[in-house]
């Protein structure tokens, strides 16, 4: 019914997941996390003032979104020519 293709880092030799790019991404995340300790924060909610709050929120949100989206597939997914 459906064809899948490796996406983002599906293959080791291509895409974002090559070691160097991954290390770069990790480095960026780390620097941004550390930068939070030097920021004078005054968010409207208490959790916003925790270091790395937005980063970890993004991580969590993407995880939840991907899981719910996969769940949604079970209900709405049909053959591509469903309406034809």
């Amino acid at each position: 019914m459906s064809q899948e293709k490796p996406s983002v880092s599906g293959r080791q030799d291509e895409g974002v997941a090559t070691g160097r790019r991954l290390r770069l991404l990790g480095l960026i995340c780390m620097v941004l996390f550390l930068a939070d300790f030097f920021v004078d924060k005054h968010g409207h909610h208490a959790w916003e003032n925790l270091p790395g709050a937005y980063g970890f929120f993004g991580l969590l949100a993407c995880g939840v979104l991907a899981l719910v989206a996969s769940l949604l597939r079970k209900f709405v997914e049909r053959d591509e020519d469903y309406y034809d």
């Binding site: 019914m1 899948e4 490796p6 996406s7 983002v8 991907a66 997914e77 591509e80």
Partner: peptide
């Protein structure tokens, strides 16, 4: 990760 599939989503 919800990979791309050739399907129709209702």
């Amino acid at each position: 990760y919800p990979k791309a599939r050739s399907v129709r989503n209702l």
